[in-house]
């Protein structure tokens, strides 16, 4: 069991949890993720990003939104409860280098995985501009932490309840139009935001990294369920990624693959039950 050592509800649907996972805390690097299960026998395996880690304390921090069965059950767990399965750290770490000016764009809980990346980019000597976006003020996460790292912090919300009333692509475009333009953009958030973020930087030739979160089972390259098309080639998000050149990713195909079970689940639910005669 991986014990929950702290829990905080950040908004109606967003939770922050600190879990005891000393091995993962020791090895994890920016950009990596974990796979979590809330039942060892019948639980599904879902990938979650790592927002922070404390190797001394032996803990990792996750920030998640309640969207499916696992995240709902996880949100109901209390401090002292355990999570039966936690695997990681998975994926290739972010390539951290001094490139000059890095714009980090985080949408919704995409800010969570952005946190360690922005931290490392800053530590590598880059100027770091952070754009945080959310539907409304209550969905903004890790503002304090990001403010500490950022040379400049830009907040946008869809409804204007915090910062500018705009999509993240608006300040991103403005930054791209400046001279000198940014040397790199890192965009993490909902697929549609990453798609339009990458489209925003494309005409300016700003190298753009996105971090993908697809459907996975094992997370070690064994199932291929996470595959995406990048530059016309098939890549596995779990082992080749999760970060890819945002200008090369086929987001439309990825978004459709993400919906694979949503469309069918309800329609086929009843039929599914009567077809399998379990003895």
């Amino acid at each position: 069991m991986y014990k929950i050592v702290s829990k905080k509800q950040l908004s109606a649907e967003v939770f922050r949890m600190e879990l005891e996972a000393p091995l993962i805390a020791r090895e994890r690097k920016p950009g990596q993720f974990i796979i979590l299960q809330i039942d060892n026998d019948v639980g599904e395996r879902i990938p979650l990003t790592i927002a922070d880690a404390d190797p001394e304390k032996g803990t990792i921090t996750i920030i998640f939104q309640t969207v499916g069965r696992t995240t709902h059950v996880l949100a109901d767990k209390q401090v002292g409860d355990g999570v039966p399965a936690l695997l990681g750290p998975l994926g290739q770490p972010t390539h951290i280098a001094k490139v000059g000016h890095v714009v980090c764009v985080g949408g919704g809980i995409g800010v969570a995985p952005m946190h360690p990346i922005a931290q490392a980019m800053k530590a590598a000597g880059n100027k770091v501009t952070i754009i945080m976006g959310a539907r409304n003020k209550s969905l903004l996460v890790m503002e304090e932490e990001m403010r500490k790292i950022a040379d400049e912090l830009i907040i946008v919300t869809d409804d204007g309840s915090a910062g500018r009333k705009a999509l993240v692509t608006v300040p991103l475009k403005e930054l791209c139009e400046q001279t000198p333009k940014p040397d790199m953009a890192v965009i993490i958030g909902p697929p549609i935001m990453m798609k339009f973020g990458a489209e925003t930087t494309r005409p300016y030739g700003v190298p753009t990294v996105v971090s993908l979160n697809t459907i996975m089972i094992d997370g070690t390259g064994m199932c291929g369920g996470c595959r995406v098309t990048v530059g016309g080639k098939t890549k596995f998000v779990c082992v080749d990624g999760p970060e890819f050149d945002g200008h090369q990713v086929d987001f439309d195909n990825m978004m459709k693959r993400l919906r694979a079970y949503k469309v069918r689940e309800e329609v086929d639910h009843n039929d599914h039950h009567c077809r399998i005669g379990l003895a």
Binding site: D41, V42, I217, Y261, R264, E265, H272
Partner: peptide, 16 residues
């Protein structure tokens, strides 16, 4: 492994 055939219990969906 994920026992998706046991759809009443398993949380892992199977593509229909």
């Amino acid at each position: 492994l994920m026992k998706a055939y046991d759809s009443a219990r398993s949380h892992t969906p199977m593509y229909q």
